[in-house]
C-alpha cells in the first residue's frame, strides 16, 4: 500500500543533539483491575533522541514497563501526548500501531519470546520478510555472534543464545527504536554481560535509539542517560559523562 508508510525513515541518525525522536508529555496510564484503579503512570514527560542509549531504572511496579509498552505501540496512554517524530501514537488506530511496530520498532523481552517451531535463522527471517529495508537475516545473527548456530531451534540453544537471537530478530529490520524489557533478567551473570555487550555494539553500529528497562542499577553505567522511575513518575534523569563498556560493569 503505497503512501501508507506514514513514518518517514530516519535518514540522519546522529547521537543526541538533533530533534527528539519521542516526545512524551504529561502521559498518564490508569488500569482498571476489577474494582481497583491502578495508576501506572502519573504524568510523565520525556524526550528521547536519535541513537541514544537510555536505561530506565526503577523497582518493579514503578511503571517502567508501561512506559516502554506505550513507546513501542503496544499500549496507549490514558491521557497526555506521545509523539514519534511528528506522529501521534495516542491517536493511532490498532492497524497503524501494528504498522508502526512492523516498520520502526525492535523489541527484546526478558523471556525471549522466540517461536519454538522456527530455527534461529527463521526466527530472524520472520522479521526481515515483512520489513521494508531489512538487513540479511544471517548478517544480523552474525552481529550478535551466532553465525555458528543459524539452524538451531530455540530448544537447542542456551538462554543467552536465545536472547541474542531475540536481539538479532529485533535489529534485523534496522529499527529506529530498540526497546528492551529486562533483557538480562532471566540470565546468569556472564551470559547477561555477553547480551549487554551485544546491545551496546548494536546500538553503535545501527544507531537505533535504544531503551533498556532494568532494576539492576549496575547496568545504568553503560547508558548515555539514566531515567529513574518510581511510582509512575520520573524521579530523576541522570546523564553519564562516559558510557562504560559492559565489561567494566559488575553486579
Amino acid at each position: 500500500m503505497p503512501g501508507l508508510r506514514w513514518f518517514a525513515p530516519q535518514a540522519d541518525r546522529r547521537r543526541e543533539g538533533g530533534d527528539a525522536v519521542f516526545h512524551v508529555r504529561g502521559v498518564t496510564k490508569v488500569y482498571r483491575v476489577g474494582d481497583v484503579e491502578v495508576h501506572a503512570l502519573r504524568g510523565v514527560n520525556l524526550e528521547l533522541f536519535p541513537g541514544e542509549f537510555v536505561v530506565l531504572l526503577g523497582p518493579s511496579g514503578s511503571g517502567k514497563s508501561t512506559l516502554l509498552n506505550i513507546l513501542g505501540g503496544l499500549d496507549v496512554p490514558t491521557s497526555g501526548e506521545v509523539l514519534y517524530l511528528d506522529h501521534d501514537l495516542r491517536a493511532a488506530s490498532e492497524a497503524e500501531l501494528t504498522r508502526y511496530r512492523r516498520e520502526h520498532v525492535g523489541f527484546v523481552f526478558q523471556f525471549y519470546n522466540l517461536i519454538p517451531s522456527l530455527t534461529a535463522l527463521e526466527n530472524t527471517a520472520l522479521v526481515t520478510e515483512i520489513a521494508e529495508h531489512p538487513m540479511n537475516a544471517e548478517e544480523s545473527l552474525r552481529l550478535v555472534g551466532l553465525e555458528e548456530r543459524l539452524h538451531h531451534f530455540p530448544s537447542q540453544l542456551s538462554g543467552g543464545e536465545q536472547q541474542r537471537v531475540a536481539i538479532a530478530r529485533a535489529i534485523a529490520k534496522r529499527p529506529e527504536v530498540l526497546l528492551c524489557d529486562e533483557p538480562t533478567g532471566a540470565l546468569d551473570y556472564p551470559t547477561g554481560k555477553i547480551v549487554l555487550e551485544v546491545l551496546e555494539r548494536v546500538n553503535r553500529q545501527i544507531g537505533a535509539t535504544t531503551v533498556v528497562i532494568t532494576h539492576n542499577a549496575a547496568i545504568a553505567g553503560m547508558a548515555d542517560r539514566v531515567v529513574h522511575i518510581s511510582s509512575g513518575a520520573i524521579a530523576e534523569i541522570h546523564r553519564n559523562t562516559r558510557r562504560a563498556t559492559p565489561s567494566e560493569l559488575s553486579w
Partner: peptide
Amino acid sequence: ASLRVLGFTQ
C-alpha cells in the same frame, strides 16, 4: 502475541 509485537497483523 510475540508475532503481533513484531508487527504482524491480526
